[in-house]
Design a protein around this nucleic acid. Structure first.
Lengths: 243, 243
DNA sequence: ATCTGATCTTTACGATGTAAAGATAGGGAG
DNA sequence: CTCCCTATCTTTACATCGTAAAGATCAGAT
């Protein structure tokens, strides 16, 4: 009982109690404590709460449903509260993208743990890449498909930079070379660009449903992961290498 | 109350003389001038004009500036006129994307005309692909980066389908195989997915500025086209083929 | 010539991003 | 302890957007 959720954003003078600022519980347990102690004017950890709310809204309603006001509603605060913490919509999206990049980096880092053979090690990262995007399509869309990001924000810049560095290092390790910080040979750059383009392109095409055509014409039951594997390992029959 | 009256929206161009109705107060603010040659009530070819206006707005103001009302302004008609021809914003974007796909297909078809060697023929299409995207970044964004497209629209479906068929045929020709309409081997699918993913991924990363890092670290004056070439032809030093 | 349907305009409404001003604490300085 | 300052959050306001509905205008069929 105690139906608290008033979707109307006007005339919500009695505030909803929000005190669940622990770790990511992600469970919308709104308990109505009628006492005085709850519903503080100052949330205390609104910034974090807004980011978590944004992630929830994104996964539930998709990219087009991710608005400043929707996030504020989800967090139970006034529609202008996010502005104070993020400046504008670009700010919120950028910080959320940074969260996504950190999740993504963690997934990539722990992907090659269980790999034993060199082939497995080579395929672990691409698979983890696609798996993350499939598990969090909204986040991946924010990270890679939005022109409304501000890379001058330190959080986003650093997280994205770490992502790129991880990729470059993985390529370097596979080529048994040291990837320098400030200079690359054309072949090194080409190897990085090839790996990144291939996996990123595959992922975006897959998420956009553009590979459904191909997948549907492949032998019965061929999954996207299997296609990715074949794409990365299949013998090359064309004339120039790789094309 | 504060009734907002946005009069600045319309009346960019003097329209046909308005006949005074019996009910209205008939304020003589409209200039009743030469009534025949200038801007007839019925445009005549509004649909085409709107698509061209949309392309102009897109290239001038970017994807976020491409709104129904902006297109209507650009075409000099009322803000609700596009709705009649395209239904909604998704409809306009979809038809515009179809225009883009046709432009794109034409560019791809004429790309390999001047190619003599097999290597040139293999590189012509990817280069034309990237070149089109760089010349028309807004169009490319509409075609490949928008979730607001309606592929059930015949124009879009056909144009996009033709694009895919062209790619598949090019791959088949390079492999000296016949690409069937309804069935693909895993290797065939992998070859198509590899080529498409690589070029599409490269293009989106390039347009998003994500390759600027790599390009900046390459030998002085290395262009994106040169990197693409190297990516498609450079020897592969990694363990599994292609990774 | 009148009527009908297609084309375009007006008007209206809810939603959004954002700016600005007001309300409310929490935490020092005196 | 009291007072005030500042960050935090709410209210209010406004321009713009997509979209629906109704009115105005015109081209052609009957």
């Amino acid at each position: 009982m105690a139906k608290t959720d008033t979707k109307s954003e006007t005339a919500r003078r009695p505030r909803a109690p929000r005190r669940a600022t622990s770790t990511a519980a992600s469970r919308p347990s709104r308990r109505a404590a009628s006492a005085k102690s709850e519903t503080p004017y100052h949330h205390g950890a609104l910034r974090e709460a807004l980011l978590q709310a944004a992630e929830r809204v994104l996964e539930r309603e998709g990219l087009s449903g991710l608005t400043l006001r929707a996030v504020a509603r989800e967090a139970g605060v006034s529609h202008a509260a996010p502005t104070h913490h993020f400046g504008d919509l670009t700010g919120l999206l950028s910080e959320l993208a940074a969260v996504g990049f950190r999740q993504f980096n963690a997934a990539m880092a722990s992907s090659s743990d269980a790999a034993s053979t060199p082939l497995e090690r080579a395929l672990a990262r691409p698979k983890a890449y696609v798996a993350y995007a499939q598990a969090h399509p909204g986040m991946y869309g924010i990270m890679f498909r939005t022109e409304r990001l501000d890379y001058s924000r330190p959080a986003l810049h650093e997280a994205a930079e770490a992502s790129f560095a991880g990729l470059a290092n993985a390529i370097g390790a596979m080529r048994q070379e040291q990837i320098s910080e400030d200079a690359l040979t054309l072949n090194q750059g080409a190897a990085i660009a090839r790996a990144w383009s291939m996996v990123h392109g595959f992922t975006t095409l897959l998420l956009d449903g553009r590979l459904a055509d191909i997948l549907g014409r492949l032998p019965e039951g061929t999954t996207a992961e299997r296609l990715l594997e074949a794409m990365l390992t299949a013998p090359i029959a064309g004339k120039p290498s790789g094309v």
